[in-house]
Amino acid sequence: MPWWTSRGLIARIFLPLSLLFALVVLTRRLAYRRGWIKSIPMPCPVIVVGNILVGGAGKTPFIITLARELIQQGYCPLILTRGYRGRSQTWPLLVDSDQDAAIAGDEAVLLARRAGCPVIAGPDRVEAAHFGFESFRQEPRRVLLLDDGLQHYRIQRDIEIAIEDGDRGYGNGWLLPAGPLREPLGRLQEVDFRIVNGKSSDADMVLQGDILVNLADSRRESISNWRGRKVHALAGIGHPERFFRQLEQSGLEVIRHPYPDHFGFREEHILFDDPLPVVMTEKDAVKCEKFASKRHWVLPVEANVEHRCIQAISHRLEAVMQEKQGEQDG
């Protein structure tokens, strides 16, 4: 929302509601801490990845990179995601790479295609976790990766990772609806790792993408070959401006078409009365590919995470794995 960037009049009008929201958030967290509401323990390590900021901060590319790293280290990561906006009649759902995004949700399908590990979608994360254990009980060294799970306290967590947007910061620093925060800024002092996404010198992660892929025939072209070219750019993600800037920094002339996060694209949304190419994000492409033509392209991105961050997370995970194993042996 426009008023989230400052503490102006509109933000102040919503401030009483933010104070009420803060009371609910803090009471809920206290209830879990004191044991008034029970968190469910899991037999394997649980890593939650999320943020306290409304909108995209880069958590999905980060989870993909983390899952791939864990696989290389001999772990069996199981990603749990909500399946937001998915219309499946049955949950939880083991998501296939060719699953319809309308059924499983756009992020779930994207994770299934890119992470290289099982993805279980479902609004009940505890049920999804048990489903994952049962489905992959023969796999050693299982690890649960809870997508967007920082505020999901029903599952006991062993490692918390907060993804921070180094470009946007935290707006006016107020909670919803006066500001963009889901939890107070002090919550960041409690997590195990803070990963800053951006291009500043102190960033821990940067999103990189330089190959365009055609949605109709899978042709690949270097984005550098498109320098100076005018394109329509579609983005139905949490922070569309980051995608538009990425294209502009690659030398493209961008006609912006921002949409709400998880927008349900239909064919008419990606057609224009000119022959210009259309470029979109991966999360949008999984919803548009079935009615896309040769003018439609996707720009996949990779989360390039500092090695020291991955190494630190790996060391912490190994310690947790040994603790869990000791508890089971005992």
Rank of each mutant, 00 (worst) to 15 (best):
D284S: 02
R141C: 12
A104T: 01
V143G: 10
V109Q: 00
N172W: 11
H262N: 08
W174E: 06
D210L: 05
D210I: 00
A115V: 03
S39W: 08
H239S: 15
H257E: 09
I211L: 09
I155Q: 09
V301E: 04
A178H: 09
S222H: 07
A312Y: 09
L78A: 03
P16W: 13
F14I: 05
E248T: 07
E139Y: 10
R187C: 10
V54E: 05
D274E: 02
E127Q: 15
E318W: 03
A67D: 06
S200T: 02
L271V: 14
E318F: 08
K199A: 12
R245A: 13
L185R: 12
L17A: 15
V231R: 07
M42Y: 03
I163K: 12
P2D: 15
I195P: 01
N304Q: 14
S39F: 06
Y75H: 08
R229D: 04
R34S: 13
R154P: 05
E164K: 13
T90S: 12
I310A: 09
L15V: 01
I237Q: 03
I37R: 15
R33F: 06
T281V: 01
L175I: 01
D261K: 01
L110Y: 07
I223H: 09
L9M: 15
N225C: 12
V143D: 06
Y32T: 02
F131C: 11
L247K: 02
A67C: 07
G326F: 07
V95I: 01
R154L: 13
A57N: 07
L15C: 05
F21I: 02
R229E: 12
I103F: 04
D273Q: 14
L234G: 04
L26H: 11
V254R: 08
T281F: 01
A233E: 00
G35Y: 02
L252T: 00
L30G: 10
G50I: 00
Q322E: 14
P240F: 05
D147K: 06
M321P: 01
H269Y: 09
A319C: 11
